[in-house]
């Protein structure tokens, strides 16, 4: 059996938030299980404050979980000390949302691409130039672009450079945190196509963080939906899209605008009232109950666990309600 590229088991993380006299703890991530197989894309979908970026940071061990384990390619890396993280950094790389902020404007592109290699002592005399050219060509840029500075490139091109840098150490897993959210739609599609072809060529695994369900559907084999620090639904992209179990997933799907004016008025829309509850004061029981149109008294008491429902998994006490109303 193949070793998962990434496995999270019961991962939790809280942060101290100082407000006036007292210090509160924010439970950003609570008991998250997640598996990404080699060559597979798992999309982690959720709104701001859902904890998806914290999961990303834990997966690359930029943050250490309070509980649970992080396993990368069969190796437990949960509590590795910074000095011991070297090999992990080779296996797992991250691409950030904003390619304007993630590239140093004073460095030439070639230096940006060589930096991870230098940090890992992998630059050999004579081969550096060839490796830069190779990386640039892999992401659809030209070898001579290595001599230029980031400002000479458009947003989409910068994201290609960020991806090239992430590939420099030949990782097996890329954690992509909203990699196309800052880009125009035409460029979004280019970057998604590039990521797809890189995955095919290099057998990469992706943990793809996004708030955009359409993007998630396009790129991923599996989708995990997060709400208030928990995974509330998990299944194949097809299962989650065609047979959503959790009311929150249904609300998310129905809120995403569809580029077809003929579906106006014919599509069943669920417009949630109110905002995402604050992570500082989460509701008792199920975190979604304050916005849920199906909530009952029990929902304020029990926080449901992720369990098999119909074809896949969801964390809802009354998932069967959906059949009745849907």
């Amino acid at each position: 059996m193949t070793e998962p590229a990434l496995r999270l088991d019961g991962v939790s993380k809280s942060f101290a938030v100082r407000g006036g006299a007292r210090t509160d703890r924010v439970h950003a991530v609570r008991g998250v299980d997640l598996t990404v197989l080699p060559g597979q894309t798992v999309a982690l979908v959720g709104e701001s404050g859902s904890g998806k970026s914290t999961v990303a940071r834990i997966a690359v061990r930029l943050a250490e979980p309070d509980a649970g384990t992080v396993t990368i390619a069969g190796r437990d890396v949960t509590h590795l000390r910074p000095r011991e993280l070297g090999p992990l950094r080779r296996d797992v790389q991250m691409v950030f949302q904003d390619p304007y902020a993630s590239l140093d404007p004073r460095m030439r592109v070639s230096s940006i691409l060589l930096e991870p290699l230098r940090a890992h002592g992998q630059v050999e005399k004579g081969t550096a130039e060839r490796r830069v050219a190779e990386l640039l060509e892999t992401v659809g840029l030209r070898a001579e672009d290595g001599d230029r500075y980031p400002h000479a490139f458009s947003g989409g091109q910068r994201q290609r450079i960020a991806i090239a840098r992430a590939l420099a150490l030949r990782p097996r897993l890329l954690v992509l945190d909203e990699p196309v959210s800052a880009l125009d739609v035409s460029v979004q599609a280019q970057i998604l196509a590039l990521l797809r072809s890189l995955q095919e060529q290099l057998g990469l695994a992706y943990l793809f963080i996004t708030h955009d369900l359409h993007v998630a559907r396009e790129v991923s084999q599996r989708i995990a939906v997060m709400h208030l620090g928990r995974v509330v639904e998990e299944g194949t992209a097809h299962q989650v899209f065609t047979d959503p179990v959790h009311p929150y997933t249904r609300a998310l799907l129905s809120a995403a605008p569809v580029a077809d004016p003929r579906s106006r008025g014919t599509r069943q829309r669920i417009v949630l009232s109110g905002d995402l509850p604050s992570v500082l004061e989460p509701p008792s029981g199920c975190g979604f109950r304050t916005r849920c149109w199906l909530a009952r008294a029990e929902c304020a008491v029990h926080d449901p666990a992720l369990e098999p429902h119909r074809s896949h998994q969801a964390a809802c006490l009354f998932p069967e309600e959906l059949d009745a109303t849907g």
């Binding site: 739609v185 035409s186 460029v187 979004q188 599609a189 280019q190 998604l192 196509a193 955009d212 369900l213 359409h214 993007v215 559907r217 396009e218 995403a256 605008p257 569809v258 580029a259 077809d260």
Partner: peptide, 12 residues
């Protein structure tokens, strides 16, 4: 090219 468009979604 728009994700979620009805035809040929995601064509760059």
């Amino acid at each position: 090219c728009s994700p979620g468009a009805t035809s040929g979604a995601g064509e760059p």
